[in-house]
Design a protein around this nucleic acid. Sequence first.
DNA 1: GTCTATATATTGATAGAC
DNA 2: GTCTATCAATATATAGAC
Lengths: 203, 203
Amino acid sequence: MIKSKGIERELSPEKTELILAGAMREFLEHGYAGARIDKIVEAAGVSKATVYRHFPDKEALFTALIQQMSCRKELFRLQNLQSYEEEPIAFLKQYAAGMLDNVAEDPQILTFLRIIIGESGRFPELARAFVTNMEKTSLDFLTEYFKTHPKLQIADPEVTARAFIGTLIHFVMIRDVLQSGDIMPMERDRLLNSLLALIVTNP
Amino acid sequence: MIKSKGIERELSPEKTELILAGAMREFLEHGYAGARIDKIVEAAGVSKATVYRHFPDKEALFTALIQQMSCRKELFRLQNLQSYEEEPIAFLKQYAAGMLDNVAEDPQILTFLRIIIGESGRFPELARAFVTNMEKTSLDFLTEYFKTHPKLQIADPEVTARAFIGTLIHFVMIRDVLQSGDIMPMERDRLLNSLLALIVTNP
DNA sequence: GTCTATATATTGATAGAC
DNA sequence: GTCTATCAATATATAGAC
């Protein structure tokens, strides 16, 4: 085994994963400024010096973590897409219900949304990565769906897709992110039924 | 003038306003954990001890400030309401356009939204005060409008109001808060026209 | 490559003069 | 009631052993 090939010191990928996993808990729970490197070190089970060998500083660790999370599309269930065969109303209702339930059941998604929005002023690149990977992906899919489904006659597919997503996201914001579902009560199924009736005009 | 009436030391309201004004800049710009008392002291032009005589600690100062801001309904132009005389489409378009332009032109509203959402996990009472004063106020008004306007026949006024507001808020989120208007481009007038065509079905 | 131990700066909050 | 000066704790980041 040839050992000497110039500088042979490299960073271990396993430690990198440990650090990122520890950083996730801390950053999601306390935000960027509120997160403590010591806590990340503790949660990761590595030394502080190792953290600083893998990432130049706190900011780089934070951006690396959030960038990585923005690529995990399964967070919003953007993959479980059914076929075009189904009736539009049934398909759209299933699509929306899956998203609403998914968000409601996973607190990590909520804290992730809070971080992205809360830090969007100081970290606009992170916000833009999130929009590119999450928002735009679902908007493009729904726009295409509204545009091409043979049983639908949508005047403006893109705005319809925005209204559809916007209504759902707003519902999630009030109910789950801002924890105010009791202040503005609205049953999930009623929202979905009336929203679909509004969007899918069946003559 | 009788001077001795037990403890006669009180807090000056003028200083309280100075402190809150200084705290606004700092908290809105850096968030709760990122805000520094020293900077607030500097911006307010008072001493640090004065701050701690008016507010028990950093958290109390923060909640007092945000609570106060949540009551300023003029932030979202929830007051400039026109009469019922106008045509529904014209009125709703003016209502929406006013809100969109207002938010786009005032960076303070954007940072306020970022704070409310970003800190909603750690300060749920603040989020709930915001929803009560801002979101519910506009939702109730629009629901009543959709329900009672003689020229409108809306099947589910409350869901329609939610779809209307949700689409607008989502548009503001993408374009202004997350600063990603170029990633998902959408002209304001096209959104408003197509959205109103969706909602206001005129036979 | 990862550790322990530490440097340096800042933080939120307070004591005491006036 | 407000100030100046300062405390004790904690922060991020680094030096040097192994």
